[in-house]
Design a protein around this nucleic acid. Sequence first.
DNA 1: ACAAAAGTGTTTTAGATACACCCATGC
DNA 2: GCATGGGTGTATCTAAAACACTTTTGT
Lengths: 239, 239
Amino acid sequence: MKSTSFKNHISVDCVIFGYNEEENKLEVLLIEQKEPSQNSSHPYVPQFALPGDLVNEEESLDDAAVRVLKELTHVEGLHLRQFFSFGDPMRVKQEKDIEWLKFYRSDPDARVITVSYYTLVRKEMINPEPGSFAKNVVWRNIKRVPPLAFDHNQIVKKATEDIKDRIYQNHIAHQLLPKKFTLRQLQNLYEVVLNTEFDKRNFVKRIKKDEELIPLAEKQKGVMHKPAQLYSFKMKKKK
Amino acid sequence: MKSTSFKNHISVDCVIFGYNEEENKLEVLLIEQKEPSQNSSHPYVPQFALPGDLVNEEESLDDAAVRVLKELTHVEGLHLRQFFSFGDPMRVKQEKDIEWLKFYRSDPDARVITVSYYTLVRKEMINPEPGSFAKNVVWRNIKRVPPLAFDHNQIVKKATEDIKDRIYQNHIAHQLLPKKFTLRQLQNLYEVVLNTEFDKRNFVKRIKKDEELIPLAEKQKGVMHKPAQLYSFKMKKKK
DNA sequence: ACAAAAGTGTTTTAGATACACCCATGC
DNA sequence: GCATGGGTGTATCTAAAACACTTTTGT
């Protein structure tokens, strides 16, 4: 009558999108896994992976995501959004991952269900440094994500789709631009996230419905063309 | 170095919305928990709950949702959509739930993370019958959902929000109306899911962009008013 | 004849799209 | 003076919303 008693590991994985304004690119934060001890009989090829790890006892999923991100990358203070859970029994059974699991998990054969989170942040606002089993942290263009550990490529893909659906909500640009910015900077951000291009006149008309843009008594300096007007945001009440 | 080894239970919960066309209501399928043996020192008050149970070893989350729904309600053949995971450590620690857990779980104190699914189905197309630890199955209007076990009220709420965001996608009406239907039937369905009302002229104009409606050589019969034209759907290619 | 819901079009408003030329600066 | 990107307005199209009277049936 009682339910069978096997249990699972629960992990969280974080997809941190970094907005690289200089090059107008979206990048994703990856860790490079530390190599297990080389005593193993199997060859080990270090892999890139999303920052993610097991959830602790008595810790909420949201809290775990924040903690794990901090432990592996020393990045904190971000608002992470849960978007999907991945639980295919085979997701931790691939050849490429078993050596790593053997070394880092007391029960390497255990099934792991992962709850995934993402956020979008201005790349230079965070300064990731490797921690825990991360040998290194790297940014990679989302258009050229390398093969990742486990099913992390699939997770990145789903996060990318999800963020597009939500960009026009929640004033996503507020954290991603400097306090003073030009309309071109704002447009670049939307274009790179949505992977498209807009007519600049039409773009401003649309964006002004969602954002109140305050023109400042200040202009761009040192550019080899007509200097752009600077703006700042004012929070608009939601409709 | 190795990760600590405690584990968790994983469950799935299913929010089955039933469209009751007669009364133009949306209802949610609940089970009534079987009472544990009365040997217990604690009083037990049977509760309503979503159909849900632990995921088996080697079973995908999607498969588990399908299986669990079948075991508890004998309902099968539905397409369930994953929408959110709930993992608050306290979600299985409330007084109201501990007696049930003690009886039905070999490890009643274990943490349970649940992955939630929903679907929307024509109520009379399924014939739920209780199974497993379900003493009974009942439909309840989504506007009057009783207090449920665990955090299931929260799960229902989130599913209700999510389904509204997606009703205009994926031809949701195709499974929910009879092969031959009137425009009023179609409009009623949208109105009850979105909890709103439309002007019938405007509604048809809008819906015709998503759905190709084929007028049949047949009319409603036996009604005490002008009989309505019957239609059927033709799948339109997505834009 | 009455009650009930079906059927039917036009006008107005708002949002989305398409489109091209002049301007201010650094070199 | 030239290269560079900034700044600007209008016309068109499409979608959404508001709105009321006539028709057909059963009783």
